[in-house]
């Protein structure tokens, strides 16, 4: 359609279509929702190379028995 809708005047300022960096496109949104349905077996996070967290320093006890 754009080729038929040509104005015979010039705009004083060039208008740029606004594209928000915040809002995902429809395709991105679909992709995000799709990925969100494919969760794994158990949650996973790694924090500062800690493979085993045994509580804070003050909390640590002999934890071999709970």
């Amino acid at each position: 359609m754009a080729q038929y809708l040509k104005g015979n005047y010039r705009l004083p300022k060039k208008v740029k279509p606004k594209v928000s960096k915040e809002k995902p496109t429809v395709e991105q949104k679909f992709e995000q929702e799709s990925l969100a349905k494919l969760g794994g077996s158990i949650a996973f996070i790694m924090k500062s190379k800690t493979f085993l967290w045994e509580g804070d320093e003050g909390e640590k006890t002999d934890q071999s028995s709970a």
Binding site: I42, A43, F44, K47, L52, E59, T61, A66
Partner: peptide, 29 residues
């Protein structure tokens, strides 16, 4: 399982640690 950041507010990791006194281990998912 180390569910989330144990220093975050309402951390599941911290709650479950305090409940069970078992260590939290990284899972890889």
């Amino acid at each position: 399982p180390l569910y989330d950041d144990y220093d975050a507010a309402n951390s599941y990791s911290r709650r479950v640690y305090q409940l069970t006194k078992a260590p939290c281990m990284v899972t890889g998912g």
